[in-house]
Computed example of a mutant assay.
Amino acid sequence: MTYVLRSLAVSDPGLVRPNNEDVAFAGNRLIAVADGMGGAPAGEVASEIAISSLAPAERSAPGAEPVTALLDAIGAANTRIRAVTDADQATEGMGTTVTAMLLAGRRLAVAHVGDSRGYLLRSGSLSQLTRDDTFVQALVDQGGLTPEEARRHPQRSLVTRVLQGGPLAPATVALIAQPGDRLLLCSDGLSDVVDDDSIAATLVGFPDREECARQLVKLAHQAGAPDNVTLVLADVVPAVDPETSTAGIEPA
């Protein structure tokens, strides 16, 4: 059986940042989030390049290998970022995270760089499909910090890998989708301030995607929302389902 995604994207500037450097895409087969590097020049340019490079994968051949399609698109984005920074010194140092999922039939591919996250809710259980490319995650992996200590660490936002025009090997995951799977991509503006238990409870407790997305943003606001909050929420359904997905970004 072939599946498609019912998806939507929401991007909110948060309560502190004067601008929004996050960009997202929500389609029938592709979902993606990119978070421009905070404090670096033209972070919003880098995140827009990432998403515009990924968008054509939505129309890739359903029989094509989805992991390869994502890696090719991210590689193209990385090359474009390098070209922009070479042409304009004012953008030197810009970069972006990117987390994307592509559905091809029943095959679901995940590609990831940075600290935006990808989650899978299946049968009421939440799994994080991505690993944060951050300084504190490396300490957690080495046993130097607990996950809870990492959430409070002053350097928790120090990212160790981003799309910045240099050599890059994104992490990938491949799995078989199941009807009823709920997928969540989010920038760290959500995951840094809302813990996984609260995210899981919201994904389970709000079946309607729009209500669920609003609740997740509300939780981030209640926690202070110090960063841009962007998320893509998608449900896996059989392709014969008549409901079409909602693609695009809701303005903040």
Score class of each variant (00 low, 15 high):
185 L>N: 08
224 G>S: 08
125 S>G: 09
182 R>G: 07
48 E>Y: 04
90 A>R: 15
83 A>I: 14
41 P>D: 07
101 M>I: 13
241 D>V: 10
225 A>F: 09
196 D>A: 14
235 D>C: 02
171 A>V: 14
98 V>L: 07
50 A>S: 05
3 Y>L: 09
170 P>V: 06
143 G>D: 03
217 V>P: 03
230 T>H: 03
112 H>N: 11
190 L>C: 04
195 D>F: 05
123 S>L: 13
154 P>F: 12
178 Q>S: 14
23 V>S: 08
95 G>C: 10
205 G>R: 14
10 V>G: 02
18 P>L: 11
16 V>T: 11
50 A>I: 11
147 P>A: 01
149 E>A: 13
146 T>W: 07
243 E>G: 02
48 E>W: 09
217 V>N: 07
154 P>T: 15
20 N>M: 04
135 F>K: 14
109 A>D: 07
8 L>K: 01
199 I>V: 12
33 V>L: 04
171 A>E: 13
239 A>T: 10
172 T>P: 00
20 N>R: 05
60 S>M: 11
41 P>Y: 07
58 E>T: 05
34 A>P: 08
121 L>T: 11
250 E>R: 08
242 P>C: 07
105 G>L: 04
26 A>F: 00
162 V>E: 08
220 A>P: 04
77 A>F: 06
32 A>P: 13
233 L>K: 04
67 V>A: 04
135 F>M: 15
21 E>G: 04
203 L>N: 01
92 E>H: 12
191 S>D: 15
213 A>Q: 09
141 D>L: 10
152 R>H: 13
33 V>Q: 02
32 A>Y: 07
18 P>W: 09
177 A>N: 06
209 R>H: 01
60 S>R: 04
82 R>D: 13
102 L>T: 09
63 G>D: 15
24 A>V: 14
164 Q>F: 05
127 S>H: 15
36 G>K: 00
130 T>W: 05
161 R>G: 08
67 V>N: 11
57 A>F: 03
190 L>A: 04
33 V>A: 03
165 G>C: 06
124 G>T: 10
236 V>N: 02
228 N>Y: 05
139 L>T: 13
137 Q>L: 04
20 N>T: 13
199 I>K: 15
252 A>E: 12
200 A>S: 12
178 Q>W: 07
161 R>F: 10
62 P>Q: 06
